[in-house]
Amino acid sequence: MIDRYKWYETALMYMGMAVFLFFILAPFIEGFLVSLKPLALLFSTPYSFLPKNGSFDAYFSMWESVPMLGMHIFNSFFISSVVTLIVVVIVVPASYAFARFQFTGSSLMLGGFLAVNMFSGAVLLIPLFRLMRQLGLLNTYWAMIVPGAAFLIPSSIWLLRTYMMRIPKELDEAAWVDGASRLYTLRRVILPLAMPGIVVVAIMTFIGAYAQQFIFALTFNSKTEFMPLPVGLFAFFGKQEVIWNELMAASFIGILPVMIVIVFLQRYLVAGLTAGAIKQ
């Protein structure tokens, strides 16, 4: 039998979780309440946490303030999806190779991956711009997809390699005894077991790609139809004032695709972990 917690221990645990959730959710709650407030009342004194005369008008007027906002949201979702697909396709075999094979220079390459992550994207903007220009990728989706994938691949390899190293090598050896090739072993034996780790990599990559588009878009793109959501949100910053309520409304609408993707993938992540725990 599992020991029961005393009433005050249970109360302290729930209080601790409530304080933690408050600090995590408070910015989102405040941002949502700001989106409901009229712009003229945002900086009124005394400050009111709950919106007075609140409405969802900002969620309708923001489409008029930034007419191409829907295109910006689609661009961000499309760029992040393509980056995630490229990263997963490259990272899965690379992580398997680093987890299973001992070859000359493997440790040096892994260290190089960490070194790449230490560089800020702003430091490499000029050489990346010259590279994009030489490849003819400026003012295209690929100008944001290629550097986005390049910056996310190293950390993804480290993450998935660690997960694959926990898969017993005896499974590979059993498949080889039955005549399976390396590729067949990876596809039919390792991938099903590594699926929870692959889902984690996909989630992290999608979030990272969604968040890093601003600097690449401003540097490698000058066409409005290719601009992602962060650049579209910047349009709410006017010369005289910032339309804060519409900016918050657009931000919440913009993160909806990310939240839907994360919730959808988390279902399969939990299902994969549970299946791996009960199989004999």
Results as ranks from 00 to 15, higher is better:
68 M>T: 14
254 G>H: 09
197 G>T: 01
88 V>I: 15
94 A>C: 12
76 S>L: 00
254 G>M: 11
34 V>I: 14
191 L>I: 14
175 A>E: 07
230 P>C: 11
48 S>L: 00
54 G>Y: 04
142 W>K: 15
261 V>N: 09
11 A>N: 11
92 V>T: 10
12 L>Q: 12
163 Y>T: 12
192 P>C: 04
245 N>S: 13
236 F>G: 00
236 F>M: 05
56 F>L: 11
182 R>T: 13
251 S>F: 10
178 D>M: 10
279 K>S: 08
29 I>G: 07
273 L>T: 05
98 F>Y: 00
50 L>E: 05
19 V>C: 12
18 A>M: 09
109 M>T: 14
202 A>C: 08
111 G>S: 13
41 L>W: 02
49 F>N: 05
100 R>T: 06
52 K>V: 08
81 S>E: 05
110 L>F: 14
190 I>Y: 07
280 Q>A: 14
124 L>M: 11
80 S>E: 05
83 V>K: 08
22 F>M: 03
33 L>N: 10
232 G>A: 10
247 L>E: 01
181 S>P: 13
75 N>I: 02
167 I>L: 12
117 N>F: 11
149 A>V: 07
265 L>T: 09
113 F>S: 07
25 L>R: 01
175 A>S: 14
82 V>N: 11
243 I>R: 11
167 I>M: 10
235 A>K: 15
171 L>P: 05
20 F>K: 01
163 Y>Q: 09
108 L>P: 07
244 W>Q: 00
116 V>E: 01
168 P>Y: 09
186 L>V: 14
180 A>C: 15
54 G>I: 01
63 W>K: 07
207 I>H: 01
174 A>C: 04
105 G>Q: 06
223 K>H: 03
262 I>S: 04
50 L>F: 10
74 F>Q: 03
145 I>S: 08
171 L>R: 01
121 G>M: 12
276 G>V: 02
179 G>W: 11
7 W>S: 08
57 D>T: 09
32 F>W: 01
219 T>R: 04
48 S>T: 04
253 I>Y: 07
240 Q>I: 07
36 L>C: 08
6 K>G: 15
50 L>K: 04
189 V>P: 10
266 Q>C: 11
96 Y>Q: 05
6 K>A: 14
207 I>N: 00
68 M>H: 15
165 M>K: 15
104 T>I: 14
25 L>Y: 02
18 A>W: 09
53 N>V: 04
60 F>R: 14
220 F>D: 06
256 L>G: 09
1 M>T: 04
237 F>K: 11
274 T>D: 04
86 I>D: 08
